[in-house]
Simulated assay, not measured.
Amino acid sequence: MKKTLLLLAGLALATTAANAQDITPATPKTDVKVRDNGTVKTTTKTGKTNVGAALDNTKDAAGNVASKTGSAVKRGAKKTGRVVKKGANKTSNAVRGGAQKTSSAAKEGTNKLEEKTE
Rank of each mutant, 00 (worst) to 15 (best):
M1D: 02
N50L: 07
K86Y: 10
S104D: 02
S67N: 08
L5C: 12
T80Q: 09
E115C: 14
A12N: 11
E115W: 09
G98I: 05
V84P: 00
T15A: 07
R35V: 05
V95A: 12
P25K: 07
G63C: 15
A53L: 05
T91P: 00
K116L: 15
R35E: 02
S92D: 14
T69I: 06
A9S: 08
T58F: 02
K79S: 15
T80N: 14
T43C: 02
A77G: 13
G38Q: 03
T4R: 02
E114H: 13
G47Y: 02
S104Q: 03
T30F: 06
D36V: 03
T15L: 05
N37V: 05
V65C: 04
A105P: 09
A14F: 00
A61H: 08
V95C: 07
K78V: 14
K68Y: 09
E114C: 07
K78Q: 12
V32D: 06
T43L: 08
N19P: 01
E115N: 09
N111M: 11
E118T: 09
G97W: 13
G81A: 12
L6H: 13
T43R: 04
Q21D: 00
T16K: 03
D22S: 00
A88G: 08
K45P: 10
K29R: 09
V83I: 13
A9Q: 05
G81H: 11
T24K: 10
T80H: 13
K2A: 08
S67F: 12
T49K: 05
K3A: 05
K41D: 04
A106P: 07
T80A: 11
I23V: 10
K74T: 12
L13P: 02
N57D: 10
K29Y: 10
A26E: 01
T117Y: 10
A54T: 11
Q100C: 05
K101Y: 11
A61Y: 12
K79P: 08
R75Y: 14
Q21W: 08
N93F: 04
N50T: 04
T117N: 13
T46D: 05
V73C: 13
E118S: 13
L5M: 01
K85N: 15
L7E: 03
T110A: 11
E108N: 01
K68W: 04
G109V: 12
K59N: 00
K86T: 15
Q100I: 06
V84T: 07
S103H: 00
A105T: 09
G38L: 00
A106D: 07
K59T: 09
K112M: 07
A106G: 07
K78F: 14
A77Y: 11
A62I: 04
A99M: 12
T110E: 06
G98H: 10
